[in-house]
Design a protein around this nucleic acid. Structure first.
Ligand SMILES: [Zn+2]
Ligand SMILES: [Zn+2]
Ligand SMILES: [Zn+2]
Ligand SMILES: [Zn+2]
Lengths: 166, 166
DNA sequence: GCTCATGATGTTATTTTATAACATTTCTAA
DNA sequence: TTAGAAATGTTATAAAATAACATCATGAGC
């Protein structure tokens, strides 16, 4: 069995993050190839920067990284367009309540877009809980509402932060 | 029994909206009095403007209304501060995915903050579905996450809009 | 190889949304 | 009435996102 287990990595838990990012990029390469979507150099760089931490990152933070790497100013649109592509491909999620973006832990699989957002450390743990999804679907169906994109963002305090500040 | 029934009004369904707004203001008066919170003239006016439709409204739209009523420019902060108060009191909800605000249909009661947001008509129907809430609580508990404020915003198409564009 | 249509990126300017810092006014309770 | 606190006014700025248009890259078809 691989050293990389299935359990989700977090910003807090120490782990081989380079591997983590490399995995994400490899998955993205495979998925885009499979779909005929063009994961260009720029988009791939932006994806890598989104993954640079396990925390949600703002578009302008990514913009700064990009500008610094290139030694010249990059325009916001450059980043926003790349992010739009990545979100459309399901490689990145946008956290609405933070105006920020985070790499998807399981692209390809169904994305319900559920996050536990910690007020303490800023971590946004992606979960995919079928019972939340089915409860939403049921509530929508009863009201004749056709679901396109359910968003669940739960603000609170993660386990680690609770232990640190009891 | 009152002419006003319990079922939720929507922007689409014709109804006595003046009554609708008056009710919201009366409820707000009562709640704030009960809590010793100060629903000042300004805050009450902003609440009324939030309720001016059943659709989410942006802070700057409310700002324009306010400026027009007074015949002079109002500063954004004026509106944002009032909105902050109203959100804190649970009289208004912020729809994160729209950067907009909508009157709460049932202030005082527990607010889980669940919305069905229609892409067609812009309506944001507030629901309070216990099974969604308990599914979220269960998922959080399993992960040791302490829930403070769950946000559910479901994008899709409402019943009316589906019937209009089949 | 060329050629053109399409998609991607560059460039400049602007819009939309939200907050900071500090002054003044209003309310409340002692 | 008179602090002290809360609310509002004022001015300036920050943060997030998009519009409009030009240029460049890519790849299918010839
Ligand atoms: Zn990692
Ligand atoms: Zn935390
Ligand atoms: Zn109404
Ligand atoms: Zn609709």
């Amino acid at each position: 069995m691989s050293a990389h287990t299935d359990h989700a990595h977090t910003a807090a838990a120490p782990h081989d993050h380079a591997h983590c990012v490399a995995d994400a990029l490899t998955r993205a390469d495979a998925l885009c190839a499979e779909r005929g979507a063009r994961l260009t150099i720029l988009r791939r760089r932006v994806l890598e920067l989104v993954w640079s931490s396990h925390r949600p990152r703002g578009a302008y933070a990514i913009l700064e990284d990009l500008s610094q790497q290139d030694g010249k100013a990059t325009a916001p649109l450059t980043v926003y367009r790349a992010l739009e592509f990545l979100v459309d491909q399901g490689l990145v999620h946008r956290i609405e309540s933070l105006n920020a973006y985070v790499g998807c832990a399981a692209p390809g699989a169904s994305h319900s877009g559920q996050f536990l957002v910690c007020e303490g450390c800023g971590d946004a743990a992606e979960i995919d809980d079928p019972s939340i999804r089915s409860a939403i679907d049921a509530a929508a169906t009863v009201r004749g509402f056709r679901v396109q994109r359910p968003t669940v963002e739960v603000r609170g305090v993660c386990k680690d932060c609770q232990e640190k500040h009891p």
